[in-house]
Every structure is written in C-alpha cells, then in structure tokens.
C-alpha cells in the first residue's frame, strides 16, 4: 500500500506523457464547428455583384451546396480559389460565397481577375452573418445538405487533397 504511493508519480507521468503524445501534431488553432448537423443559421445578405444574386438561409434548401467564406484581403483565399473554379467547371455542386468584411470594389476586382466560381454571393460587410455561422477565420468552407443542414466545415484553404479526400466523398454521399 505504502509502496504504491511511491509508484504514483511515475504512473501519473506515464499517463501525462501518453496523452501529450496523442495531442502532438494536432493544430490547436483549428476548432470544430458547433453547428455540425444543425440547420444553417438564419441570415440574409445582399448581392455583391450585378447579376449574381445575394444569399439567404432559404437559398440553401433543396440541393447540396458549398458555402465559402472569402475576402479579397485574405491571401489563403487565393490558394483555394482554383479549386472552386475547377469544381464549378465540373458542375457537380452549387457554390455560394459569403464575402467577409470586404470593400465591394476590391471584391469585384478580385473576382474579375481570378474568375467567379460562385452562383450566389452575399456581401457580409459587417461580418454579422459570419458570426451566425461561427466563423473565426477566413477562408472557411461549409458543406450543406438538401435539408439545409450544415454537415461539414473546413477551416483554412481547401487544397486539392482536402477536396478529394473529404469534401467530394461527402458530396457524393449527400447527393445520392
């Protein structure tokens, strides 16, 4: 019994070390969304571009869609942009954009230069819709199912690998 007491420190240390090992390599800045499997939040945003309609909760029902939060001032958004353009060409899924805290002229120029993958873009100048979505960084990308529920969130730029390994399989499943 008494001997157990002396062994306690090394046992506790072992436990701590194993847990610390499990935690290594995880990026602590990536947070899970509180909204997974919940209906997309209530919001309504005016259009950013002429000819491209704005975005509201009602638009998210009826088909599987991607919602991408982007801004022209966000360098990583440029990294993921080609991925969305490719996805648009393939016509597999509706891609909607939420333009976060951007000047309309900057955002317009940015899309003109790089191409516009979005069929709807809501201009979230105050960033209030983004709070409804639980956004804490740009870019973030959400997968919405037919019932308008959030099924997946990707934090940071969507790289081709993320698309192939996570997002496309999920889309296929949701579109079945």
């Amino acid at each position: 019994m008494r001997r157990l007491l002396y062994i306690l420190p090394v046992v506790l240390l072992g436990l701590v070390a194993v847990l610390a090992y499990l935690r290594l390599g995880k990026d602590p800045s990536i947070l899970p969304s509180a909204l997974i499997d919940r209906p997309a939040p209530e919001f309504a945003l005016p259009p950013l571009l002429d000819g491209v309609p704005g975005l509201a909760t009602a638009d998210l029902k009826g088909q599987v869609a991607l919602v991408n939060v982007f801004a022209s001032w966000c360098a990583p958004c440029r990294v993921e942009h080609p991925v969305f353009l490719r996805l648009k060409e393939e016509g597999r899924v509706a891609i909607y954009g939420i333009n976060y805290k951007d000047k309309p002229e900057d955002a317009t120029a940015w899309l003109q230069r790089l191409g516009n993958p979005y069929t709807r873009i809501g201009a979230d100048r105050e960033g209030r819709a983004a709070i409804e979505w639980g956004v804490y960084g740009v870019p973030e990308t959400f997968v919405i199912d037919r019932e308008g529920r959030i099924r997946y969130r990707h934090v940071g730029p969507v790289q081709p690998r993320d698309l192939d390994e996570k997002i496309l399989p999920l889309l296929r499943e949701l579109q079945k």
Binding site: R2, R3, Y6, I7, P9, V10, L13, G14, A17, A20, Y21, L24, G25
Partner: peptide
C-alpha cells in the same frame, strides 16, 4: 513544430520518468 515537441517529450519521459522510477525504487 511537432518534431521538437516529440523530442522534448522523449527527453521529459526519460529524465523525469527515470527520476520517478528511481524514486519509486529507492525512496521507500
């Protein structure tokens, strides 16, 4: 940098683990 983290973790486990083990053996 997970690689550094791993190294310190191993260092920690060896140094402190060794010390505690010694403690468990000798302190009683």
């Amino acid at each position: 940098d997970p690689e550094r983290g791993l190294f310190i973790l191993v260092l920690l486990a060896v140094a402190v683990g060794g010390a505690f083990l010694l403690y468990a053996l000798r302190a009683p």
